Amino acid sequence: MMEDTAGQSVDIGNGKLRHLLALFLLNANTCTPKHWLVEHLWHSHAPRSASSNLKTYITRLRRFGVPIATQTDGYVITVAPSQLDADLFENYAIDGRKALNRGDLYEAATALDAATRLWRGDPLHGINLDKELSLWAERLRESFRLVTEDLFEARLSLGRHREIIGPLKTWVAKNPLRERPHAQLMTALYRDGRRADALEVYRDLRNSLVMQVGLEPTSALRELQQQILLEDSRINAESTVHMMMERARTVIYGANSSVPHESKNWNPLRRRLDTG
Results as ranks from 00 to 15, higher is better:
residue 125 H to K: 11
residue 82 S to Y: 10
residue 132 E to N: 04
residue 92 Y to I: 01
residue 74 G to K: 12
residue 75 Y to P: 05
residue 83 Q to D: 09
residue 54 L to C: 00
residue 36 W to E: 10
residue 62 R to A: 10
residue 110 T to F: 14
residue 86 A to L: 12
residue 59 T to I: 12
residue 115 A to K: 05
residue 52 S to E: 07
residue 98 K to N: 07
residue 98 K to A: 04
residue 61 L to W: 11
residue 138 E to P: 02
residue 130 D to K: 10
residue 68 I to Y: 01
residue 88 L to K: 02
residue 120 R to W: 08
residue 108 A to S: 15
residue 91 N to F: 09
residue 123 P to N: 14
residue 127 I to Q: 01
residue 98 K to T: 09
residue 58 I to N: 02
residue 95 D to H: 15
residue 121 G to A: 06
residue 101 N to K: 12
residue 86 A to C: 07
residue 108 A to H: 10
residue 45 H to I: 02
residue 83 Q to W: 08
residue 64 F to P: 00
residue 122 D to C: 04
residue 89 F to K: 03
residue 74 G to P: 09
residue 76 V to N: 01
residue 49 S to C: 09
residue 112 L to M: 13
residue 104 D to Q: 06
residue 47 P to L: 06
residue 57 Y to W: 15
residue 49 S to P: 02
residue 124 L to G: 00
residue 106 Y to G: 10
residue 94 I to W: 10
residue 131 K to E: 05
residue 98 K to M: 07
residue 93 A to L: 07
residue 102 R to Y: 05
residue 83 Q to V: 09
residue 36 W to H: 12
residue 102 R to F: 11
residue 58 I to P: 00
residue 114 A to Q: 12
residue 51 S to I: 06
residue 39 E to T: 15
residue 55 K to N: 10
residue 87 D to V: 14
residue 78 T to P: 00
residue 136 W to P: 00
residue 134 S to Y: 07
residue 59 T to S: 13
residue 132 E to G: 01
residue 107 E to F: 09
residue 81 P to C: 08
residue 120 R to Y: 06
residue 90 E to M: 08
residue 127 I to S: 02
residue 33 P to K: 14
residue 105 L to V: 05
residue 32 T to P: 03
residue 54 L to A: 02
residue 56 T to E: 13
residue 93 A to S: 15
residue 48 R to W: 07
residue 105 L to E: 01
residue 53 N to S: 13
residue 41 L to S: 02
residue 77 I to Y: 03
residue 111 A to I: 07
residue 97 R to I: 01
residue 77 I to H: 01
residue 44 S to I: 04
residue 72 T to G: 06
residue 92 Y to S: 01
residue 86 A to R: 14
residue 36 W to P: 02
residue 130 D to I: 15
residue 83 Q to E: 15
residue 36 W to N: 05
residue 62 R to E: 08
residue 96 G to I: 05
residue 46 A to K: 07
residue 109 A to N: 15
residue 38 V to W: 02
residue 97 R to W: 10
residue 117 R to E: 07
residue 84 L to Q: 13
residue 113 D to W: 12
residue 130 D to Q: 11
residue 127 I to M: 02
residue 48 R to A: 09
residue 89 F to D: 00
residue 128 N to R: 14
residue 129 L to P: 01
residue 49 S to D: 11
residue 65 G to S: 05
residue 106 Y to R: 15
residue 38 V to K: 13
residue 42 W to A: 02
residue 114 A to M: 07
